[in-house]
Amino acid sequence: MVIHRYEPNGKRLSHVLRHNGIVYMTGQVPSDRTEDITGQTKQLLARIDHLLALAGSDKAKILFAQIWLKNIARDFAAMNAAWEDWIPETNLPARATVEANMAANEILIEIALQAAVEN
């Protein structure tokens, strides 16, 4: 059994790993937390592109995405607009979006996902 781990975070986790043709990505949060929901979402989507490439995948192969929003009533439409500009219309994944308390008050969004890898 081979598990490839990418971008470990100390002793706690790997930001992304690949096993048996699936990429598993931990919840990603924005590094610049001063931006609004659109800016934070675009940051995360760029980070996701980077991590998927490290693991040999891309956004067209996303199977499932989980999105947490600090304020779903306020931010859902703007987050969706950034997401729709980014995701290929012909490769829409399954997705769930919920409201949640965040680890830091300035974090407006977190995204975790699984994606396929061509073997």
Rank of each mutant, 00 (worst) to 15 (best):
residue 68 W to H: 10
residue 83 W to Q: 01
residue 2 V to S: 14
residue 96 A to I: 14
residue 41 T to Q: 01
residue 93 P to I: 09
residue 57 S to P: 01
residue 101 N to T: 14
residue 74 R to C: 14
residue 119 N to F: 10
residue 88 P to L: 01
residue 61 K to F: 05
residue 102 M to R: 14
residue 53 A to I: 06
residue 1 M to T: 12
residue 4 H to Q: 08
residue 52 L to A: 03
residue 28 Q to H: 14
residue 11 K to T: 13
residue 90 T to I: 15
residue 23 V to S: 00
residue 65 A to Q: 05
residue 91 N to M: 11
residue 19 H to E: 07
residue 63 L to K: 12
residue 24 Y to N: 11
residue 48 I to Q: 00
residue 68 W to Q: 11
residue 79 M to A: 04
residue 27 G to H: 09
residue 74 R to A: 13
residue 87 I to E: 09
residue 65 A to L: 08
residue 86 W to Q: 00
residue 23 V to P: 00
residue 78 A to V: 07
residue 12 R to D: 05
residue 101 N to Y: 11
residue 88 P to V: 02
residue 65 A to W: 01
residue 72 I to G: 13
residue 63 L to Y: 14
residue 15 H to I: 09
residue 46 A to W: 10
residue 57 S to Q: 01
residue 106 E to D: 10
residue 29 V to D: 03
residue 105 N to P: 06
residue 99 E to G: 03
residue 108 L to K: 13
residue 55 A to E: 02
residue 24 Y to D: 04
residue 100 A to H: 05
residue 100 A to I: 14
residue 73 A to G: 15
residue 12 R to L: 15
residue 21 G to L: 09
residue 20 N to F: 15
residue 7 E to P: 04
residue 35 E to K: 06
residue 65 A to P: 02
residue 114 Q to E: 04
residue 9 N to A: 08
residue 37 I to S: 00
residue 62 I to P: 00
residue 97 T to R: 03
residue 5 R to D: 07
residue 40 Q to E: 02
residue 26 T to P: 09
residue 7 E to L: 10
residue 48 I to R: 01
residue 49 D to W: 07
residue 56 G to E: 02
residue 100 A to K: 10
residue 28 Q to F: 14
residue 115 A to H: 01
residue 93 P to W: 03
residue 4 H to K: 14
residue 19 H to S: 07
residue 80 N to Y: 09
residue 104 A to R: 13
residue 114 Q to A: 08
residue 70 K to N: 08
residue 85 D to W: 07
residue 17 L to G: 07
residue 61 K to D: 07
residue 101 N to D: 05
residue 32 D to M: 08
residue 110 E to Y: 06
residue 86 W to C: 00
residue 116 A to S: 04
residue 67 I to L: 01
residue 96 A to H: 11
residue 53 A to H: 10
residue 34 T to W: 05
residue 97 T to L: 02
residue 111 I to D: 00
residue 12 R to F: 13
residue 93 P to D: 02
residue 42 K to F: 05
